[in-house]
Amino acid sequence: MDLLDLMKSSIRAPGRLVNLLTIDELKGIDVDTSGATIGALATLAEIADHPDLARMFPALALAAGHAATPQVRNVATIGGNILQRPRCWYFRMAQYPCLKKGGDTCFAMDGENKYHAIFENSLCAMVHPSNTAVALLALDAVVRTAGSGEIPIRKFFVTPDQDILRESALAEGELVTQLFIPATGARSHYLEFRERQSFDWALVSAAAAAELEGQTLNNARVVLGSVAPIPWRIDLGEIAATDEALDRAADEAVRGATPLAKNKYKVQLARTAIRRSLRELARATE
């Protein structure tokens, strides 16, 4: 996680820090016919550049490759990436005692909320900032921990309703050791929109995955990033691989959005992200 930033901003002041970088068992990427096992300390650059991951799980490789800058990707780990705290500027500024810091107000509700959630935003309007979480959720990954053992990624991220102070289901002291992605033969794709072309968090990201059968996408799902307090999964089931059907699905998927005063624009971006990521899967069928 991005602990140093939080310490610099006086959000966290831990009395003691444990260096995990010396634990070799947390490193490395192994890919075989059953799937990919990725150490929590694998860097985003290693993941982005891994030829087997790029072939079998392109959504993940693309997501890792879009994060931050080359310099950051060389040191940032996937374990840290999925455990990033919110980028919400009220959370990041010590002078705002927001809900996530134990306060009683979400300042974003009536404040500067152009980057905030358009789904699941009635209590706290943070968005989950991780690129790779979006891809991992689309790929039905499993989080392995030293502690409870395995947590399916669908249960890993928790909403503010479930626990306002945390974003993951990890227990106190529980450590992510590996991520496992099962090989299912699903095709996948990832894309994101951001305000500038480099060194930026996504305004909206999308990872899409589906199995192919003729002109049909089976078990199609899209996970949106930066639109809700958790990576936001939309299951579309079986869907015809035509532009019209995919666009209809995209329109349908954002119908329930509840944008705030300054982020209606994100609904349009979400719709476009769904369309383009699904079309990319469909294009692969032709």
């Binding site: 500027w89 500038r196 480099s198 930026d200």
Partner: peptide, 13 residues
């Protein structure tokens, strides 16, 4: 007041 939310173009932009 942060470079993550005051958006400055990069050379890629």
């Amino acid at each position: 007041c942060q470079l993550t939310n005051y958006i400055l173009p990069t050379t890629a932009d």
